[in-house]
């Protein structure tokens, strides 16, 4: 199981304010808290800084590294920003890039960075024809992504396929399409990882946390083995450890017992 902590994202008003004030303490605090809560990677996204995204990314990476010893996930649709983030990393952890896609231009711009920095990479199942709608769309694109990434020299173990989760409020079949995709991917690419975010699925619905938690359990059962989420959400993290134990991914339930002892399940 791999958890990418999603909280350092400038689309959140708290982070946006911190960036405007260059408040490194707050950024460091949030990074630290996420690691303590069980995040394996810290996602770093400053996408709202349209005019100086590369500079802000480099600053964020430096600030986080000064305080926290953890691998970082550099998150931007812009290859220049990815480069700015990756070249600022000076710890010894393998970074992650969020993300590459099968769009021809995007793939050709991001793949040199993936190879040069030997990163783990989140590969979104979308191509030049647009967002995937069906299970077949996702499998076709996943197939191409895995083949192209492996041919470029990326190890299967470094690939995290994102099947692209879409709101079930908009398309009633959106959830099940992802679950079917995962079951197929598990057969076809057992060594390739599968990742997703959990908030898209509940867009437009009330009590979103319930939908998000339920979808985490369903997707993990179907083969998802990494998530981009808020690790400070104790309910969600509690379900993650419980699901791992129940799916035979936690020998002697030791992780589950450990997080219980740390107080994860006390209100």
């Amino acid at each position: 199981m791999l958890i990418v902590g999603e909280l350092i994202n400038s689309s959140r008003s708290m982070i946006k304010d911190a960036l405007e004030k260059m408040d490194s303490t707050l950024i460091q605090e949030i990074a630290q808290k996420q690691v303590e809560a069980g995040a394996h990677y810290i996602d770093v996204n400053c996408g709202t800084q349209v005019y100086n995204e590369p500079e802000i990314m480099a600053w964020l990476v430096k600030v986080i590294q000064d305080k926290v010893s953890a691998p970082l996930c550099i998150d931007s649709p812009n290859p220049k920003v990815l480069k700015a983030g990756l070249s600022s990393i000076n710890n010894n952890y393998q970074p992650m890039v969020n993300s590459i896609t099968a769009e021809a231009k995007k793939f050709s711009e991001v793949i040199p960075l993936v190879v040069e920095y030997k990163v783990k990479v989140i590969a979104l199942c979308m191509d030049d024809s647009g967002m995937p709608k069906t299970t077949e769309d996702r499998l076709r694109i996943a197939d191409r992504l895995v083949n192209d990434l492996v041919s470029a020299g990326v190890k299967e173990d470094d690939i995290h396929l994102d099947p692209l989760v879409q709101p079930v409020s908009f398309d009633s079949q959106a959830g099940v399409a992802v679950l079917e995709t995962l079951l197929k991917l598990k057969e076809q690419y057992p060594r390739v990882h599968k990742i997703c975010g959990l908030s898209n699925v509940s867009f437009g619905l009330p009590t979103r946390k319930i939908i998000n938690q339920t979808f985490m359990i369903q997707t993990m059962t179907a083969g998802m083995d990494s998530y981009i989420l808020d690790p400070l959400d104790k309910k969600m993290m509690g379900f993650i450890y419980a699901s791992q134990a129940l799916l035979g991914k936690d020998d002697f339930c030791m992780n589950y017992i450990a997080v219980h002892r740390k107080g994860l399940y006390t209100e």
Binding site: P167, S169, F170, F203, G204, L205, P206
Partner: peptide
């Protein structure tokens, strides 16, 4: 927040 996206649709 009294009705939701599916109801709008």
């Amino acid at each position: 927040n009294e009705v939701f996206v599916p109801e709008v649709l």
